[in-house]
Design a protein around this nucleic acid. Structure first.
Length: 737
DNA sequence: AGCACGCCGACT
DNA sequence: GTCGGCGTGCTC
């Protein structure tokens, strides 16, 4: 048997696997994730490596393969565990081992950032000049370059990175001169602490009855060794964060560490601040804007036990704590918890798996739990903890407005009469308003009003979007072309963008309420580094009366002075063409409604819609999650969608359309025999976006009750792709559920 | 990263 | 000829 071993993940040139023979006496001990000592290089110096795969076929001539020296039992277990986790990700979600390793260990790259090596002269300038003359005479050009560079700079010396890049100095030269005591090399480890210093322990902590009950139940069960995940279902504004804080307090007091997952850090900085205030420097944050080096620093700090709480997006799951006790996943229903790249893992399942590996607990929290999570809670796979009431104040009153009726009555504006009236009243009362457009910013296709021709991207087969700079852009591949003034098909002048973005709403508001101060939040206005925070802070400081925005304004913010939320077109997300559209609509409406009336004054919500009878809108208006859930789970059962079953979408892509179609025809013949194994198969069919980035795409959908059936199918497809020449040019992508 | 190999100018 | 130094490529 042979083992694939990764030698040193910190070195880019060694970022590949090496195959070693497993001696018979070690066969039981060598497993994926285990740390081993291996002879490496000509000198056979013993290095530490990690086993990332085991197989029986040598990939290079067998005589070149050396034996594994020994298995190290000790060492940093956390890293081994991460590698085991990578193997699990690969198996569960489909990817290469390399991709899986890269998601789990954002380590490599820029290790030199962690160690700064500074080179200084160890002798006087005069002496240095002597050496310089000597080396010049000896034609030791590299040493001359190095000395000249050092003489030019002051006693602060030069960084090795600078020397290597600007002066083409190699490590050997530096080492040689160091040996001769001409220069000194000083290494210092540096890492930045992203935590802004805030005084800990100031927050007043009074749990209300429901919160106390939930926290106590968690603590009792946790201490009793119960490790079934908990689902904290609490309506908007019920104080889930406070519960998390207490739970973490309980677990960290036992010397364990905690990971707090949040969907997107920029959108939840208020939450993060609360953790700082409570736990101070024990907390670290993983920022999406952080460089790889900075992230690596945070992982190091976690591994060394310098911090005990890590807050961050889904990648924070892979923090190598040595004694992990608790994983908290806030806003569990968020789409951001699913990775967009292979391995396309979902943080929910991965968190459960990690917790199992470490003996830790998992707490999911949401005001609108995903159908999956609630389904599991119903099946008693999760323990349900409830916070049925707001911590302060009551839930807002919700009105649904039928836009068809408005139109019949001659109201053509984007605001219904109800909404207009309420806005007027809030402005007078100096209270704040949020207007939510259920759609991303300026986007809109460009069509000819005469012939109906729609402009499309030549590479991607999807409609182009008009941008404010006058260009037309493809969102998938970035293709750009100038705006057209005449229809390329019929020559008509009546061609223009279909505009219904936040910018239009903002203009309409300004026209109708000239006295109001308006802020807009969408992709355009948040482009800057801290765009989100700036706008949110300004609105929070009541520098504006009305905030207009898309999805991003409704997520988890706390503005006590907002008493009116207007949802301008609730149906916009209803026909997105995937089985989660209704769920997403309900979620957005509920979350949006949850922004109103969080302070002393009661709040009101207006939902404008063309389909008030749709169950997701009706349930959101009634603010009744269970009502929605019952309807939705019935729909999923009838249609056979997750969570009732498991689903796998396989995308086959190729630049060569013929080969792609040939492979699909082959699949159509082969696949039916898989159906014996209780796997339901549709396709292959052309993907929604058939051509993207010059790649043609076909998709196959597989459904099965047991998840393992699908992973088995995934493996079969992978082998097929590797071994069958028909699949030479074809790439596979897997997407579960 | 560390190590060896091959190349090149300088020195005895 | 030989020696010291440099750059490159490989490591299962």
């Amino acid at each position: 048997m042979y083992a694939d071993i990764i030698v040193d993940i910190s070195q880019e040139q060694l970022d590949k696997t090496f195959q070693y023979r497993i001696p018979p006496e070690l066969e039981n001990e060598v497993q994926i994730g285990v740390m081993v000592q291996i002879p490496f290089g000509r000198g056979n110096r013993l290095l530490t490596g990690y086993v990332i795969g085991i197989g029986s076929t040598p990939k290079i001539p067998a005589e070149k393969i050396k034996d594994i020296d020994s298995v190290s039992q000790s060492g940093i277990q956390a890293v081994g565990r991460m590698i085991q986790l990578a193997a699990w990700l690969k198996k569960q979600y489909g990817s290469t081992m390399n991709q899986a390793l890269k998601t789990v260990l954002p380590v490599k790259e820029k290790v030199r950032q962690k160690e700064k090596k500074t080179v200084r002269l160890a002798v006087s300038k005069e002496k240095a000049a002597e050496y310089l003359a000597l080396y010049e005479k000896k034609n030791a050009v590299a040493r001359v370059r190095l000395l000249k560079a050092l003489c030019k700079t002051d006693e602060n010396g030069l960084d090795t990175a600078v020397l290597k890049e600007q002066y083409q100095i190699t490590t050997q030269t530096i080492q040689a001169l160091e040996k001769q005591n001409v220069i000194t090399v000083e290494t210092q480890e540096l890492y930045r602490n992203p935590v802004r210093e805030t005084a800990p322990g100031q927050e007043r902590l009074i749990l209300n009855e429901a919160q106390q009950k939930a926290v106590t139940q968690f603590c009792t069960q946790f201490d009793a060794g119960e490790r079934k995940p908990w689902l904290l279902y609490g309506v908007t504004g019920s104080g889930k964060t406070l519960c998390y804080i207490e739970m973490i307090q309980h677990v960290t007091a036992q010397g364990k560490q905690a990971i707090v997952l949040i969907p997107e850090i920029a959108l939840t900085f208020q939450t993060v601040q609360r953790f700082y205030r409570r736990f101070g420097s024990q907390v670290s944050v993983l920022h999406s804007r952080m460089s790889k080096g900075e992230r690596y620093d945070q992982f190091l700090r976690a591994m060394r036990g310098e911090i005990s709480i890590m807050i961050g997006p889904r990648s924070a799951l892979f923090t190598p704590f040595t004694n992990l006790g608790l994983i908290i996943m806030d806003e569990e229903h968020e789409g951001a918890y699913k990775s967009e790249q292979a391995p396309r893992y979902h943080a929910r399942e991965t968190a459960v798996h990690i917790a199992k590996m470490c003996g830790a607990g998992v707490v999911f929290g949401s005001a609108t739990p995903s159908v999956e999570a609630f389904y599991r809670a119903k099946k008693n796979e999760y323990t349900l903890l409830e916070l049925p009431r707001r911590a302060s104040g009551t839930l807002p009153a919700v009105y649904t407005v039928d836009l068809r009726e408005e139109l019949k009555c001659g109201n053509r504006s984007v605001f219904s009469r109800r909404l207009q009236e309420l806005i007027q009243r809030r402005l007078a009362a100096k209270e704040q308003i949020i207007l939510f457009l259920n759609k991303r910013g300026y986007a809109g296709f460009v069509s000819c009003r005469m012939c109906g021709h729609v402009l499309k991207c030549p590479h991607c087969d999807i409609s182009l979007t008009e941008h404010k700079n006058g260009k037309m852009v493809c969102h998938y591949c970035g293709y750009e072309q100038p705006r057209v003034t005449r229809c390329p098909v019929c020559g008509s002048k009546y061609i223009s963008g279909f505009r219904a973005g936040t910018q239009q709403i903002e203009e309409a508001v300004k026209k109708m309420y000239p006295q109001a101060r308006v802020l807009r939040m969408d992709m355009d206005t948040t482009a800057g580094k801290e765009g989100h925070e700036k706008i949110l802070a300004a609105f929070s400081a009541q520098e504006a009366d009305i905030l207009v925005g898309t999805q991003m304004i409704v997520k988890g913010h706390d503005f006590p002075n907002v008493t009116l939320v207007g949802v301008l077109a609730a149906d916009m997300s209803l026909y997105a063409g995937d089985y989660r559209a209704a769920e997403r609509t309900f979620e957005l409406l509920t979350q949006a409604a949850g922004r109103a009336g969080r302070g002393r004054q009661a709040g009101e919500v207006v939902i404008q819609t063309y389909t008030p009878q749709h169950y997701s809108i009706a349930a959101a208006a009634a603010q009744n999650y269970e009502q929605f859930y019952e309807e939705e789970i019935a729909f999923r059962s009838i249609m056979d969608y997750p969570p009732v079953c498991n689903m796998l979408m396989v995308t086959l892509s190729s630049k060569n359309e013929e080969q792609l179609l040939a492979a699909c025809t082959f699949l159509k013949e082969v696949i039916p025999e898989w159906k014996k194994e209780q796997v339901r198969i549709t396709g292959p069919v052309a993907a929604g976006v058939y051509k993207r980035n010059d790649y043609y795409n076909q998709v196959v959908y597989l459904k099965a009750t047991a998840y393992e059936k699908l992973t088995a199918c995934k493996d079969r497809l992978e082998t097929l792709c590797r071994e069958n020449t028909l699949f030479r040019s074809i790439g596979l992508q897997f997407d579960f559920n």
